[in-house]
Computed example of a mutant assay.
Amino acid sequence: MLIGTANEGRYVLDYPITQWAFACVVAGAVIGLLLNIPMVTQDQGYLPAYVAAAGLTRADPATVSRPLAVAVHHGTALVAALLYGAVVAGLSVVLPTAVSLNGVPLIPHIVGIAGISAFIYYFFARIAMPRFGGSVRDDADEIIRQWALTAFIFGTALALFIPVLVTWL
């Protein structure tokens, strides 16, 4: 991974927004697939995805189908990656962009990763689980801890993958 300055290369705002969005969608799809590994190896597995799907369908998590839970899991990864892309593009206007990782401005990238990771954890822990946990509320503490790990893995993977992926733009 190359570290450079914006004067030596391109930074996010130099990419057409469609290319930047495409890179974020690809990253979200790949990372969503990779997140299957920690989710199936944890004790509570896909329960966060079932809770999120329950919120969308207004059903109890125990009645949500596995295909819907998996679709919500992967859809969430796509939306979170696009939200990260929007945050980075917006922050690139107001924060310093002189230092970059393969064309991704470092400070907006770090702030975007931290912000999106914190947001997806907070949204699940404070909104989705309390409102839509239904029959799995008794395991809420364990499910939220496992979601924290998944959110951290998502952020770390996105932080590493995006600067590599944009080199292929």
Rank of each mutant, 00 (worst) to 15 (best):
A59E: 15
V164D: 02
S65L: 03
A29D: 06
S100R: 11
L101T: 06
P96W: 04
V164P: 02
L33E: 12
I3P: 03
N7G: 14
V40D: 14
V40N: 15
H73S: 07
D14I: 03
L33Q: 15
A52N: 04
F161E: 10
G32Y: 06
P105Y: 00
L13V: 11
A140H: 11
C24K: 01
A59Y: 05
A6H: 08
V136G: 09
P48T: 09
R137A: 15
V12F: 02
S65E: 11
L13K: 13
V88G: 01
H74D: 13
C24W: 00
A98C: 02
I143G: 00
V30G: 07
T5N: 05
P105A: 14
V64W: 03
A159F: 02
Y121K: 05
Q44L: 13
V93Y: 03
V40W: 08
A62F: 08
V94I: 13
D60H: 07
A80V: 07
Y84P: 07
L34F: 07
P130T: 03
V25P: 01
G28E: 04
S92L: 00
G115S: 08
V99I: 14
I3R: 11
L2V: 10
I153P: 00
G155A: 02
L47D: 07
I127Q: 04
W147S: 08
V164A: 11
N102S: 13
M1R: 11
S100N: 14
L78V: 11
I116C: 07
V166E: 02
A148R: 13
V70Q: 13
H73Y: 06
F152A: 12
R58K: 12
A140L: 09
A125W: 04
P96I: 02
V51L: 02
S135T: 14
I162D: 11
H74K: 11
V111E: 09
Q42F: 14
R10I: 10
V93G: 08
I110G: 02
P48G: 08
F152Y: 07
A125L: 05
A6V: 07
T57L: 10
G134S: 09
W168C: 06
A86T: 07
G155T: 01
T63H: 13
I116W: 04
A98G: 14
A140I: 09
I143E: 00
V104C: 05
V87T: 14
Y50T: 03
D43G: 14
L169C: 10
S117G: 13
I144F: 05
L82M: 04
V25L: 15
H73W: 07
T57P: 01
I120F: 05
M1A: 10
G55W: 09
I120E: 05
C24N: 09
Q42K: 14
L33M: 12
A89Y: 07
L101A: 14
L2T: 15
I144H: 02
F152H: 00
G112K: 01
I31K: 06
P130R: 06
A81G: 05
I116S: 10
P163G: 04
T150C: 05
A23T: 10
I3L: 11
A62S: 15
F123N: 09
G55E: 04
L160P: 01
V87F: 01
I113D: 09
A148S: 05
A62K: 13
T41R: 12
W20H: 01
N102A: 13
N7E: 15
